[in-house]
Design a protein around this nucleic acid. Structure first.
Lengths: 126, 126
DNA sequence: GTAACGAATCGACAAACGTCGAAACAAGGG
DNA sequence: CCCTTGTTTCGACGTTTGTCGATTCGTTAC
């Protein structure tokens, strides 16, 4: 899929410095651009169906799941596909076709970046 | 404000067990109900303006900020108020009027719960 | 009282979103 | 080949969302 747009949430996945998009929320006020980037991640997880799909992939054996394994979330199959695409566009999932089936996998570096965003830091003195 | 609806994201703020709404995303597939609850939190942060407002409060001295301190995010005053209300309804902020001004404060227990949701756990063997 | 200021609510509007059924695409098996 | 199965795309629909200007509410100062 050469034309798919994936957000550059993480600059590189090289050995060490995973380079998150933004500092912790508590460090300083976000700039407009930082907020734009980070909001896309949160928005992607801001839907119950997507959260279930994401959790299903994330908790599946081997760290990946076929669409057919996780389609049981109470919406039609096209809707499942639609949500998986959104998670993929947000950079939270990657997909790979293997024969008949398509497998989705969690992009753990992005998940880590989001966790770092939410990291609690000591309250600044008034 | 007796009629405001605050989501029960955290059962209690008592001394120790902050009782998050849900297990880590990677632990097991979310139930519909867990997803519904957690998605509301993520959704609240899924807008750039709200993220900037939240970050501004979170990073402000003393852990709180007057609306007038953080209104500089490029939207009208009613819109700022609207977004602060959403963050409040999601349980991420609390507010308190002190004289002329209204101060917002981060509900850190909820922030912690969200961070725990995103905690990375080892990939299960296939 | 009334005027001034900060903040919340109201009403309206366009844009974005979630959902579905139908159709198209991809891969494998007769 | 054609048929079946898994997945994505398309088109349409109703709902939700973000935004604003105008108004209202709460508080303080005069």
């Amino acid at each position: 899929m050469p034309n798919s747009k994936v957000l550059p949430l993480v600059e590189s996945e090289a050995s060490e410095g995973v380079a998150p998009c933004c500092p912790p929320l508590t460090e300083r006020p976000f700039t407009a651009q930082e907020a734009e980037t980070a909001a896309r991640m949160f928005k992607a997880l801001g839907d119950p169906v997507r959260l279930r799909l994401f959790s299903a992939v994330a908790s599946h054996e081997g760290g990946e799941a076929c669409v057919c394994d996780i389609s049981d979330v109470g919406v039609s199959q096209p809707t499942v596909s639609h949500h998986l695409k959104k998670l993929k566009d947000a950079g939270l999932l990657t997909s790979e076709r293997r024969g008949t089936w398509v497998y989705y996998r969690v992009e753990s570096s992005v998940l880590a970046a989001m966790g770092r965003l939410l990291a609690l830091t000591p309250v600044k003195a008034a």
